[in-house]
Nucleic acid binder design. Structure first.
Lengths: 157, 157
DNA sequence: GTTCCTGCAAAATTTTTGCATCAGT
DNA sequence: ACTGATGCAAAAATTTTGCAGGAAC
């Protein structure tokens, strides 16, 4: 499958995020910076808890959950992160690229793993549909549910 | 736009649901029956709270939230209802047609309203993509975010 | 020196579970 | 009667908010 994000693009996002935060007149505190840094290294989405846990595993002070949520909230307001609801009761967050390039998600019903999915034909069909609606579309999310290749391989059926 | 569900199809679903429940060796209690009856009358998805409120407004005893959740859980296990996460922190539920015919959702960022969306070209693109993946897809969800016609009309920009 | 950011704790929300009781088959 | 269904209350899990202290500009 097409590669969804390159290391270069992730580094660009981190710079863009810091610049946007600063341009919005916001300051560079430790917790929010840690969240931006961590997200910049991700290939796909993380839950607030996963973010907090990952930061706890790193050297340096561990931010509180509230700060993680506040950072994500600020970033979402600036359209720097995209909130993704994959079912279940945890929200997940991932970097939103400035050029609008994005991917969608496939969730395994057995292992719960999330695989990023990108497909141009699908995006085209989606835009075609958006044009035919009286609804003004700013964003869309697609979630696939099923079994990932690893789980399907582990057991027939 | 294409009509998403007819009255006839909803009545069929109610009958199918009762039959499936019975076939699974489950009994016909009042709370679950009330939930099935209510869902059968819906054009689109409802949250657990909305279901409970709607049942409270009807004559007869009002089931507890726990029973509503348990009913929805059972119905989801039997693939009679589909759980839909539209963002925010409430899950929504809607009848799942036996023939797999389904629709998706557009959520207005201003009024929070949900509009059902159906599009055959999109479904085809989705199936085409599913065939190209190593992921075994059983179901998919698509959510559009933006402004509904009513909110777009109320204020320019 | 402001004003924003952070952390902790408390609150609010949504969903799940335990348990005694009631009801369907 | 047996076993599942229900209701209430308590528990869990996730996210939000209040407030005091600390940090960035």
């Amino acid at each position: 499958m097409r590669r969804v994000t390159t290391a270069r693009e992730r580094a660009d996002w981190a710079r863009h995020a810091e610049a946007s935060i600063s341009a919005a007149g916001l300051r560079a505190g430790g917790a929010r910076k840690a969240v931006v840094d961590l997200l910049a290294r991700q290939e796909c989405c993380l839950s607030a808890q996963e973010i907090r846990d990952a930061l706890a595993a790193e050297p340096g002070p561990t931010p509180g959950m509230a700060s993680v949520y506040r950072a994500l909230d600020t970033l979402a307001d600036l359209h720097l992160v995209h909130r993704v609801d994959l079912g279940g009761q945890v929200a997940r967050f991932e970097p939103a690229r400035a050029d609008g390039e994005h991917h969608h998600h496939a969730v395994c019903r057995e292992c719960g793993g999330v695989t990023p999915i990108g497909d141009d034909a699908l995006e085209q069909a989606l835009h075609g549909m958006a044009d035919r609606l009286s609804f003004e579309v700013d964003a869309h999310d697609i979630t696939l549910h099923g079994r990932c290749a690893a789980c399907a391989g582990r057991g027939e059926r």
